[in-house]
Nucleic acid binder design. Structure first.
Lengths: 109, 109
DNA sequence: AAGTTGGTTATCCATGTGGCTAAGTATTGC
DNA sequence: GCAATACTTAGCCACATGGATAACCAACTT
């Protein structure tokens, strides 16, 4: 996809995928274990995993017949930073507004 | 949609929509001004705005023929919190692992 | 009153997404 | 070797998404 944020936010915009991420923060797990709590077919679930992997949120290795998946935390931090930055601009605007309000009588017609 | 996070992350998974949010952190603006920098047709752009509004990220009022849009910052904070929580669990796991490592000789067979 | 401006509504289209089943491959256990 | 396990690939389907045009309405401007 375009931006890294595109694929990240796209990946998080689904409850199944968020649940997988939540689970993986507690440590790696094989595909079958990740799939177990979700009431959808395995191939469908694999497509979700694929999307997480494409977004760089997750990595996996196969040993024998079992594929173990682990989280890649960096992208989470990138998105968190983006959101924090927006919030700071927003809050900064509020600050500037209140400062303006302080100086309202002299400055504004 | 399902969760509030669904519609939030869904809304952010598009560069046009993120650009609108970035612009709106600096203050409200009419639709035409928001649309100007984007090289897409107005009706297409309006669909993006609609999605932002559906996700509760933005609100708008119409006065005369001009509709003014302003940001609703709360959902940003909700998502930021969710991400921060994931990060804390992830980091907590690392902490526990290192603590475990400290106690490795006595505790582990 | 006529024209311009700022949105809005209605359709349409190609592609993406999330779901399924069926069938296949490769390990591992007996 | 055979069966069970753990994915994997292929194909199908309904609906959502992001894009477009055309036509419309309402409110200013002149």
């Amino acid at each position: 996809m375009d931006n890294q944020l595109d694929s990240f936010f796209g990946a998080m915009a689904d409850p199944t995928r968020r649940a997988v991420i939540e689970r993986l923060t507690q440590g790696p797990a094989p595909v079958s274990e990740l799939h177990a709590p979700h009431d959808i077919a395995l191939p469908t679930f694999l497509k979700h995993l694929r999307k997480l992997e494409d977004a760089g949120l997750v990595r996996s290795e196969k040993r024998g017949r079992v594929r173990t998946v682990h989280i890649e935390a960096a992208p989470l931090a990138v998105a968190e930073d983006w959101l924090a930055r927006q919030r700071r601009v927003w809050e900064g605007r509020l600050d500037r507004l209140s400062h303006l309000a302080d100086r309202l009588p002299p400055d504004v017609s």
